[in-house]
């Protein structure tokens, strides 16, 4: 029981206002979930769902298509939000984002490699649930490891450096994906196009269940590092003197970010700017300490992604806008605004 309670120690570091925002974001997450499952090319009314049994077609749409899809959007949003927040904390850089620094591209390259070169070797189930996510995670981890070495351990002096390296890695990954596109067959090409634009259309219970479990446990594993990320903002030597094992912390943040970004990219393709924008908005609302920022970014990222997915489904219904296009269209101007307003870049 104590162990269980002590997990929630991070709540002690939240101010009253931050707690209020945090609980509000949790509620918001569930509201967006309910709204997202009820709207689309088929509309379900929330209250009707409670009272009557939907007929069989509606039922299939709701339980087999809509709910997995919305869940996936919510969890991918949460992953990108929290990994953006923790990477920004780790790099001590407000511009860090799994997309900008090349982590998503690494994951996409990993995924593309398996799609084009590996799909013949595995059964479909094994391929979708294990081979693809594993390859995407490895790609993400490889990129973060490269960044780590090139920025000499993510030191403060390595910041601009890191973004430049991100550009280079993004370029290299596009080359890789380009080559794979060139040699791919028609059916593989369809799969590849899906990565570059991002979509939740492929969600089914069978595919998302392992991913959801991985994402939930990784996020739960990340949250206790929040206080340590706060201390890290004083600089590595200071954080060390306050009792933080820096190497362990770096390892944990890097690996956990790679896992959830890798899984997310494996299932939904490259969805840009969410990891950058969400932590900034969360900071603007309630403050910068990571005990608040990490969990709040997860819930807010989830809400944002579910609403983006909802938009992508209803904007030109019954057709769909790829959700990655939508988030980039909204996120890129925000990023520009951020650059113009930032004092420290």
């Amino acid at each position: 029981m104590n162990v269980f309670l002590s997990y929630f120690n991070f709540l002690n570091y939240l101010s009253k206002f931050q707690k209020f925002i945090f609980y509000f974001l949790i509620i918001l997450f569930f509201i967006f979930f309910l709204v997202s499952i009820s709207l689309g090319s088929f509309n379900f009314f929330l209250f009707d769902l409670l009272t009557y049994q939907p007929d069989s077609l509606n039922k299939i749409v709701l339980y087999e298509i809509r709910i997995p899809r919305v869940l996936l959007a919510g969890f991918v949003g949460a992953s990108l939000g929290i990994s953006g927040a923790s990477l920004q904390g780790l790099f001590r850089n407000p511009l860090a984002d799994p997309g900008l620094i090349g982590v998503s591209a690494g994951a996409a390259l990993g995924a593309a490699l398996v799609i084009v070169l590996g799909s013949n070797f595995f059964s479909e189930y094994f391929f979708n649930t294990f081979a693809l996510p594993f390859s995407a995670i490895s790609g993400a981890a490889l990129v973060i490891t490269l960044l780590y070495f090139f920025t000499r351990g993510f030191g403060y002096e390595g910041i601009t450096y890191m973004l430049l390296i991100g550009i280079a890695i993004n370029a290299l990954a596009s080359v890789g994906i380009g080559i794979l596109t060139f040699i791919s067959s028609d059916s593989e090409l369809r799969g590849l196009t899906f990565w570059t634009m991002g979509s939740f259309g492929g969600a089914s219970w069978q595919i998302i269940m392992p991913a959801l479990v991985i994402i939930i446990f990784t996020i739960l594993w990340m949250i206790p590092s929040a206080r340590k990320l706060d201390l890290l903002q004083l600089g590595e030597p200071e954080a060390y003197r306050l009792g933080i094992d820096i190497q362990k912390l770096k390892f944990k943040v890097i690996i956990s970010s790679a896992i959830i970004v890798g899984v997310s990219v494996a299932l939904s393709g490259m969805i840009g700017f969410v990891g950058l924008v969400v932590p900034h908005l969360v900071r603007l609302i309630g403050g910068v300490n990571h005990s608040y920022l990490l969990p709040a970014s997860a819930f807010f990222g989830g809400s944002l992604m579910m609403s983006a997915d909802l938009l992508s489904r209803i904007l030109i219904s019954p057709a769909e806008v790829p959700v990655g296009l939508l988030t980039s269209a909204l996120g890129a101007p925000f990023f520009l605004w951020l650059i113009f307003n930032s004092r420290k870049i």
Binding site: R92, N93, P94, Y156, L231, G235, R241, R283, G287, V288
Partner: peptide
């Protein structure tokens, strides 16, 4: 590393802090 932090505390030339922490939060650290 943890026990060291309980035994000695150190103040040196500090690095710039990127995010907008409040003074209370810094002291809390």
């Amino acid at each position: 590393i943890e026990d060291r932090a309980f035994t000695r505390s150190v103040m040196t030339q500090s690095q710039p802090i990127v995010f907008d922490f409040t003074v209370r939060e810094i002291i809390e650290m």
